[in-house]
């Protein structure tokens, strides 16, 4: 299907916070309680409409496991949006947000829109992180915030679509250079002023540090 823009997203956060479940809920509208461990990176895609324009979201779902951290880092580059996910029933996943955010800021392009997501909002009885704490963290770091449930689908659409809206606004404001695919945005084939090229060698951004494992 044709699209006006393609936005590239990355989903990050500790292992077990529900990154793959959020993606599955968004792309397939279903919940799978037992999910295989994500290794390296997995992909998802869905078309959405913003301002009457078809936008394709290409989503890179990363492994939360420490063993894959340096591989995950290499994927920040060239993402227009990031969903930074923690689990409201596990305080430590919230405590690790600062590390994730530092990683993301260091390795991504500076215009990347980051959405903070407190997932598993359906498990109110087991809540360890108050909604206000999430809001405060987001305010402090200039992020958009939402609580979601990949199980009930609450706010899942909104999380992905609001991030896209913010990216779209930045394009309208001219913040993003849409001709540079390193920003994680690609103009659809029929909308391109010039002949769109496939990803080539070289590019923007950099990543530091270790290899795998």
């Amino acid at each position: 299907m044709s699209y006006a823009y393609l936005f590239k997203y990355i989903i990050i956060g500790d292992t077990g916070v529900g990154k793959s479940c959020l993606l599955l809920q968004f792309t397939d509208k279903r919940f799978q309680p037992v999910h295989d461990l994500t290794i390296g990176v997995e992909f998802g895609a869905r078309m959405i409409t913003i301002d009457g324009k078809q936008i394709k979201l290409q989503i890179w779902d990363t492994a939360g496991q420490e063993a894959f951290r340096s591989i995950t880092r290499s994927y920040y580059r060239g993402a227009a949006g990031a969903l930074l996910v923690y689990d409201i029933t596990r305080r430590e996943t919230f405590n690790h947000l600062t590390t994730w955010l530092e990683d993301a800021r260091q390795h991504s392009n500076s215009n990347m829109v980051i959405m903070l997501i407190g997932n598993k909002s359906d498990l109110e009885s087991r809540r360890e992180v108050k909604k206000e704490e999430g809001e405060a963290f987001a305010r402090e770091h200039g992020l958009v915030f939402m609580e979601t449930s990949a199980k009930t689908a609450a706010n899942v659409e909104e999380a992905f679509i609001n991030t896209a809206k913010e990216i779209y606004e930045k394009i309208q404001e001219g913040v993003f250079d849409i001709n540079n695919e390193a920003n994680g945005i690609k103009i659809g084939p029929q909308h391109s002023p010039t002949n769109p090229s496939l990803p080539g060698a070289g590019g923007q951004g950099g990543s530091q540090g270790g290899g795998c494992c």
């Binding site: 390296g40 270790g210 494992c213």
Partner: peptide, 10 residues
């Protein structure tokens, strides 16, 4: 991942 390493300095 080990053989590919990571991209530094462009």
């Amino acid at each position: 991942g080990s053989a590919r390493g990571s991209l530094v300095h462009e």
